[in-house]
Design a binder for these strands. Structure first.
Lengths: 121, 121
DNA sequence: TTAATATTTCTAGTATTGTCGAACTGATTA
DNA sequence: TAATCAGTTCGACAATACTAGAAATATTAA
């Protein structure tokens, strides 16, 4: 288990809440488009191997060279929701989507839900 | 085109925002589980044919017999986000998920995003 | 027409969220 | 070690969102 607090139990409401902000959705889509590979630990933790830095993300999303506290805040929200992972690489933090989250969300909408709940309709 | 203001242009951020509230997600999941059939107009509008009433939903979600303004508020949010549709049936309003929204969301997570954005990583 | 039922809208209060600038931390370079 | 670079955290403020109760609307029943 890693030292840093990781959200291993994926909460679908938290994910939707995180994706419900336009800035965060842009960050998420940027990271998805990057499609950087990740390492999966025995513990289940996911770590990025390569990927854009916080600065790259900030530049892409805001056009700003300097990393803003706002971007940092949104990255934290995405991380706590289990949607992305980050890891220090020298002076930088490199970022990546959490593929497990994508799988979970794809399943959530892809599968036909169980029909026939007797207490409805 | 229907008289009531309908959101025909589906906005993915608005959908995530709507699903990011636990009460709304419960309502949405209940409606999905009901799996009630809908009618699709030439205009593209989707109308429920059968489905639970607002009272049914309120009862299921809050355990409360009386419909609360809070449930009404959340239903409106889901409706404005394009996730559900509602129609009057006598004294009641009957509700249903918008299948187009489910398809859109399934595609959003199901498809592999276009990789190779040169300005990333 | 009046009453009752089902639901929405309005208003106000509280809580949560996003933004900004300043201060702080960790890692590298001089 | 000092300076710099890359990001994060903190504190304050504005904006937004959720909740609750009261009043309003639409439909049906008496």
């Amino acid at each position: 288990m890693s030292i840093t607090l990781q959200m291993n139990q994926l909460d679908i409401t938290a994910m939707f809440k995180a994706l419900g902000d336009p800035t965060r959705l842009r960050i998420f889509e940027f990271l998805r488009a990057c499609g950087a590979p990740v390492a999966v630990e025995e513990s289940g933790d996911v770590r990025p191997l390569v990927g854009p830095t916080v600065g790259d993300i900030c530049c892409h999303v805001t056009g700003n060279e300097r990393v803003t506290s706002s971007i940092s805040f949104h990255l934290k929200e995405l991380r706590l929701a289990g949607l992305i992972t980050m890891e220090r690489r020298g002076k930088n933090m490199i970022c990546s989507v959490n593929p497990e989250a994508i799988v979970l969300l794809a399943q959530y909408f892809g599968t036909t839900p169980s029909v026939g709940n007797s207490d409805c309709c």
